[in-house]
């Protein structure tokens, strides 16, 4: 069909569509579309009654992108950087711009370190991490875990086996490291006592 000039007639007529689909064509005119044009200069439209916002108090040295001239006047205060992951995050912001892959890769690595640090820290608290309750895995039993998958043509079934490795892998590795450390300590004591 595209080998000739006319566009193939693939759709029902507009009258048919108007009769079949509620609201068909209500925004046919681009003037009715709120995102058209994309940019509309109208500083008063937002409700802001300031030229530049008051500055929020900076209660700790807030990490920021090198591509910003200064700390933005308002910012989130969730989860300040801490531990080794915090050192990595602060280094990434201080050293690399958003344009450098190293910036993002260090942040991703810091996320993994943060998870390990937090799991270990939780075991020293009254609220240790619980991989059963925190993964919500019990819903496999209560919300049709088997029938949601068996007999279905789901593309995600081909890589389902990877998820338990990703979730449980760090716990298994951590257990192996702790066990190895304890064994090594036992061996060294044995050598000393001999």
């Amino acid at each position: 069909m595209p080998y000739r000039a006319e566009k193939p007639k693939l759709a029902p007529s507009s009258d048919e569509l108007r009769a079949r689909v509620p609201g068909w064509g209500a925004d046919l005119d681009p003037k009715d579309r709120p995102a058209v044009p994309r940019e509309r200069f109208d500083p008063g439209a937002s409700g802001a009654h300031w030229d530049f916002p008051d500055r929020q108090e900076e209660k700790w040295p807030r990490e920021r992108s090198l591509e910003h001239e200064f700390l933005t006047p308002v910012f989130g205060t969730s989860t300040p950087p801490k531990g080794l992951s915090g050192v990595m995050r602060k280094y990434s912001y201080a050293r690399y711009s958003e344009g450098r892959a190293a910036h993002w890769l260090i942040l991703l690595a810091a996320d993994r370190v943060d998870a390990i640090e937090s799991h270990l820290r939780s075991f020293l608290s009254l609220h240790p991490d619980n991989p059963v309750t925190e993964t919500g895995i019990r819903s496999e039993l209560t919300h049709h875990g088997i029938s949601s998958r068996i007999g279905k043509k789901r593309a995600d079934l081909s890589h389902l086996w990877i998820d338990p490795i990703i979730v449980a892998g760090p716990w298994v590795i951590a257990g192996w490291v702790v066990l190895s450390a304890l064994r090594a300590r036992g061996d060294s004591r044995h050598l000393i006592s001999r």
Binding site: T133, E134, G136, I137, H143, H144, G145
Partner: peptide, 11 residues
């Protein structure tokens, strides 16, 4: 936690 798993696993 169950909500996230149900949505994530498409149960």
């Amino acid at each position: 936690a169950e909500g996230y798993h149900i949505f994530s696993a498409k149960l």
